[in-house]
């Protein structure tokens, strides 16, 4: 089996090293997830053999997750591993913002508002975006989506604000 441990890769030494490396954060992430899973299902009964309760699987899985979390943290603290690279703030804000804007506007304002809004907001995530080009492209795509989703596929998505009748 092809086991390519990240530990091996970073051992090459090309990347800068730190004690607070990627594996430590990965372990921490698992431990936090496990805690959410375990304490979130704490009140649920694990049941007995003949009546496995709703709490058994999530609790067992959470304990397993925590174990792997501890393992990764120990590995991370003992050895030298890759540093965690930073999040792209601009991309995250505009992409997630675009999706959330779509979610917020699609029912009250309809597809013909929500669609272009999402496209224009998301386009701001990329410094390469050319304003005129994206505006024309958005108009084109909006018309395309209308034809595709409403005319061809008849999906029940609101098209315009209900105030206007449709």
């Amino acid at each position: 089996m092809a086991v390519e441990d990240p530990a091996d890769r970073s051992a090459g030494g090309a990347t800068p090293r730190t004690r607070l490396n990627r594996e430590v954060f990965a372990g921490l992430f698992l431990i936090v997830s496990a805690a959410v899973g375990y304490f979130g299902t704490l009140p649920l009964d694990a049941g007995s053999m003949s009546g496995v309760g709703p709490g058994l699987l999530p609790k067992a899985v959470s304990l397993g997750l925590a174990a792997f979390g501890v393992y990764l943290m120990v590995i991370g603290l003992l050895g030298n591993h890759e540093r965690i690279d930073g999040f792209s703030l601009r991309g995250t804000i505009f992409i997630l913002g675009a999706i959330l804007a779509f979610a917020a506007t699609v029912r009250p304002l309809g597809l013909l508002v929500a669609g272009p809004l999402a496209m224009l907001i998301s386009s701001m995530a990329d410094p390469d975006t050319r304003p005129l080009e994206i505006v024309i492209f958005t108009a084109f795509m909006t018309a395309g989506c209308y034809l595709l989703f409403k005319v061809v596929l008849h999906l029940p998505i609101p098209l315009l604000p209900p105030l206007l009748g449709y």
């Binding site: 992409i95 675009a98 999706i99 779509f102 979610a103 699609v106 597809l111 929500a114 669609g115 999402a118 496209m119 224009l120 998301s122 386009s123 995530a125 990329d126 390469d128 975006t129 050319r130 080009e133 994206i134 492209f137 958005t138 795509m141 909006t142 989506c145 989703f149 999906l155 998505i157």
Partner: peptide, 18 residues
């Protein structure tokens, strides 16, 4: 890509909504 990803976003949003 600067045009591709907004297009993916709108298609995905409509798809998930549906």
């Amino acid at each position: 890509y600067r045009l591709m990803f907004p297009a993916i976003i709108i298609f995905c949003c409509i798809g998930i909504y549906s």
